[in-house]
Nucleic acid binder design. Structure first.
Length: 353
DNA sequence: CTCGATGATTCAAT
DNA sequence: ATTGAATCATCGAG
């Protein structure tokens, strides 16, 4: 029963002579000086409000207008607002101030890290391509790939931003629309500023959940783009014929121990214009595939064995006879194959002999 | 489009 | 760290 000053929003017309607009039960103690006439007024107004629905439309409209213009109207309206605010406030309250969504934070961080949501750097793909071109030279292929990646990324970025802007705009439009509507309605029903604020919050929350979806799908797109460009399997290129021949030559001439040393790998890498890692891959693949199906590689083995034999023969007796590499004589075969302890399986040797 | 060849990756064993 | 084995993803011929 503690009676605080009730009408915080001290609208004009209410401040005079206590609170003449208040209903009786809220009025006690505040001095009833010349209150009887006012009470009569209030009673009349309330009566009119209660009966307004019984009247015809035109009559009600006219009465409504009259009530709207009544000098007591602002005061009554404020009281209603206050009551409503109090009751509404007690209903909700706990649901405010949700913590920042960790999922949303993750998405934001990733978009920032990928350069999708952050400040545009270097003017996008054009600059990237220019930089790549400028660096030029040896890494031309690599930088071409890179600029392609950058171009696609900036495409995603652009879509993301336009969509985001669209949502933002739609959100603002909708918010102002609703606020106008509420302001309009506030002339005929009590709507507190807090209520408007709450409504705006609801709208923003809805729109931010849409934005979250946008962020999610943008992240997915970036992930796909990344995996496409980072997974080297996707940009596999066969080695050129010469490189393959060099590698095969080494492999078949070291068939007893086809494990090139680090130095040998470097040498081969240099000759083939590939990396040492690629040489290692190649030998790894070759060993396992050869072992798996020696029969299949027999022809190849013969060819390279013959070739190295011919080369060796040529080296020893410098071209005294014009021997064709494609048809070496059988003596050379035997010489080579007996030099090859080979793998576990000795099929190659038996065939040759 | 199919299918074998091939370079790269992954993972367990050493 | 290196290797073997399985697997993936693409190439390229038919």
């Amino acid at each position: 029963m503690d009676e605080q000053p009730r009408l915080m929003h001290s609208h004009t017309g209410v401040g005079m002579a206590g609170h003449p607009g208040l209903p009786q039960h809220m009025q006690e103690g505040t001095g009833g000086t010349d209150g009887d006439g006012r009470k009569q007024d209030i009673g009349d107004i309330l009566q009119q409000i209660m009966t307004i629905t019984d009247q015809s439309l035109d009559e009600a409209q006219a009465r409504k207008h009259a009530l709207n213009c009544h000098r007591m109207k602002p005061a009554l309206f404020n009281v209603l607002c206050e009551i409503k605010e109090k009751t509404v406030l007690s209903i909700r309250g706990a649901q405010e101030e949700e913590p920042p969504d960790p999922q949303l934070m993750r998405l934001d961080n990733m978009l920032l890290a990928e350069g999708v949501s952050g400040p545009e750097k270097g003017g996008g793909s054009a600059a990237a391509a220019a930089a790549a071109a400028a660096s030029g030279g040896a890494g031309a292929d690599n930088s071409a790939e890179h600029s392609d990646y950058r171009a696609k990324l900036s495409q995603i970025r652009q879509i993301y931003h336009t969509e985001l802007e669209k949502y933002e705009q739609a959100c603002n439009e909708f918010t102002t629309h609703v606020m106008n509507l509420l302001r309009e309605q506030s002339r005929t029903r009590p709507i507190s500023p807090k209520e408007i604020e709450r409504m705006v919050n609801i709208i923003h929350r809805k729109f931010s959940s849409i934005q979250m979806q946008l962020k999610q799908s943008t992240c997915e797109a970036v992930m796909i783009l990344r995996s496409r460009f980072l997974d080297a399997r996707r940009k596999r290129r066969n080695f050129n014929k010469q490189a393959t021949e060099i590698l095969n030559e080494y492999f078949y001439s070291h068939l007893s121990n086809p494990y090139p040393s680090e130095e040998a790998k470097e040498e081969l890498a240099k000759k083939c214009a590939i990396t040492v890692a690629q040489v290692s891959n190649w030998f790894g693949n070759k060993r396992i595939r050869y072992k798996k199906n020696i029969g299949k590689f027999q022809e190849e083995a013969n060819m390279y064995a013959a070739r190295t034999a011919v080369n060796a023969a040529n080296a020893s007796s410098h071209g005294s006879q014009a021997n064709s590499p494609s048809t070496p004589n059988s003596i050379t075969y035997i010489a080579i194959t007996t030099n090859l302890p080979c793998y576990k399986n000795q099929t190659v040797i038996t065939i040759f002999l």
